[in-house]
């Protein structure tokens, strides 16, 4: 029974990863793509790891999978933030249909 739940979680996780990749291809600029890449891929991978932990049962596999899931949850948004800031600092433009850019004032005021 718990195996079935594990396999379902793995399946859903892979599904979210696929949707994240579709978003990565379809969205127009770096920042929107990061949204797809961080959200869907993080949740997808975490679900996948939880599924692996359930299928593996109590033991070293499950422990490692859970530790990996926690680290991914902590590091992936941090990495996304670093990439977004770096992209802006190196002059990557926002999509032309972007409605507002409050960050321009700060980035433009002598900071790089």
């Amino acid at each position: 029974m718990i195996d079935v739940v594990g396999y379902i979680l793995i399946f859903v996780g892979i599904l979210f990863n696929i949707f994240g990749c579709i978003g990565l291809v379809r969205f127009p600029d770096v920042y929107n793509r990061l949204q797809a890449a961080t959200k869907c891929v993080t949740l997808g991978t975490v679900l996948l790891l939880v599924g692996v932990a359930l299928v593996g049962g109590v033991g070293s596999t499950a422990a490692k999978a859970i530790v990996c899931a926690v680290f991914i949850l902590v590091t992936s948004p941090t990495a996304a933030h670093a990439i977004a800031k770096g992209a802006y600092a190196s002059g990557v433009k926002l999509w032309e249909k972007t409605v507002v850019d409050k960050y321009a004032e700060r980035a433009g005021s002598g900071r790089s």
């Binding site: 949204q35 993080t42 949850l73 948004p77 933030h81 977004a84 800031k85 960050y103």
Partner: peptide
């Protein structure tokens, strides 16, 4: 960053 449609830039 992980929640609806938002991403911290700075």
């Amino acid at each position: 960053t992980l929640t609806p449609g938002t991403l911290t830039v700075d």
